[in-house]
Design a protein around this nucleic acid. Structure first.
Length: 295
DNA sequence: CGTCTTTGACCGGCGC
DNA sequence: GCGCCGGTCAAAGACG
């Protein structure tokens, strides 16, 4: 079980013109990305049970203070929406911090393959921080994974940068002849690691997710959004900036078996290192809520 | 042999 | 300028 929290680091400009649509969509109060908590709860209650043990809850935390956009009560119905948008455009950094409460090794994936390139002990933190970058050589996306010093069950994952490519499995989806299990990661000498449990959980975070969030979720989502999702095109920028878990924190395993789209969907190999999910905003509305004040 | 992890070294930013 | 700290590099080893 884990819960998840998403925050944003607002810093330098990161949206370019090509992201305008995304911003507008995010700012649109009808946007599926802004789901009221009650809506979320409704959806949550609606989801068939037993639900996956991966996700127990999703919660959000406003970091609007970082941007000065602290007027949460006004929401995006405010007449100042345009002003807020301008501020967004100039202050949001493409950094997302997720706090994931985890139990055991069952974590989630974000649909991308990551290569670990470093690990550092952080001052005043009992747990090391691991550094990952996207395995795609053309992609500069990175992420940092560390265990919360306050709650050792909480993983803090900071995503940075945009993926300049589709998810691994989306790539496969379009190239069926290339479907094969992703390169497996070896996880050796874990006993040598100072914080073994963290390592294991971390490994799960980067490896096991696919099996947990694999096409079953997408299949379920497609089942409900068949008309639209069967023709999922290239994934949008939000896929790049919003981790999959945020976009689709639930794994609707109960619906996994039936979908008209699975024929075109690659099977998820066990222990694969990437998710085979495509993303759709429509799905997102069902599974994640984003505090509007966050943006 | 290719890929990946590990881990010490290195580098740059920042505060004093 | 110096030291601390976080982020990255890259060599070495493990693994399939």
């Amino acid at each position: 079980m884990f819960s998840m929290e998403i925050t944003e680091d607002h810093g330098t400009t990161w949206f370019n013109e090509s992201d305008d649509d995304l911003i507008r969509e995010l700012l649109d109060n009808e946007s599926p990305f802004f789901v009221l908590p009650q809506t979320f709860e409704t959806e949550e209650a609606h989801l068939s049970k037993p639900r996956t043990n991966l996700v127990s809850e999703v919660y959000t935390e406003s970091t609007a203070a970082n941007t000065g956009l602290t007027d949460q009560s006004n929401g995006f119905h405010s007449r100042n929406a345009a002003v807020l948008e301008e501020k967004l455009m100039s202050k949001i950094d493409n950094k997302y911090t997720l706090k994931i409460r985890s139990c055991g090794n069952e974590m989630s994936d974000d649909g991308y393959k990551w290569r670990k390139y470093g690990q550092k002990s952080i001052k005043n933190s009992p747990h090391p921080r691991s550094y990952y970058r996207c395995t795609n050589p053309r992609c500069s996306a990175k992420k940092q994974v560390e265990r919360s010093s306050q709650d050792s069950d909480t993983l803090v994952i900071t995503y940075e940068g945009l993926h300049l490519h589709f998810t691994y499995t989306n790539f496969l989806l379009n190239q069926p002849q290339l479907i094969q299990p992703p390169t497996k990661r070896s996880k050796t000498n874990i006993n040598q690691v100072q914080d073994r449990q963290f390592q294991e959980t971390e490994a799960a975070q980067t490896q096991q997710i696919p099996a947990l969030f694999s096409q079953t979720t997408l299949a379920a989502a497609r089942f409900n959004h068949q008309d639209k999702l069967c023709d999922v095109g290239p994934q949008g920028l939000l896929e790049d900036m919003v981790p999959l878990m945020v976009r689709r924190p639930y794994n609707s395993t109960t619906l996994s078996s039936s979908t008209s789209c699975t024929s075109s969907y690659p099977s998820s190999p066990p222990s694969s290192s990437s998710s085979s999910l495509s993303w759709s905003p429509n799905i997102f509305t069902q599974y994640a809520s984003v505090n509007s004040s966050t943006i």
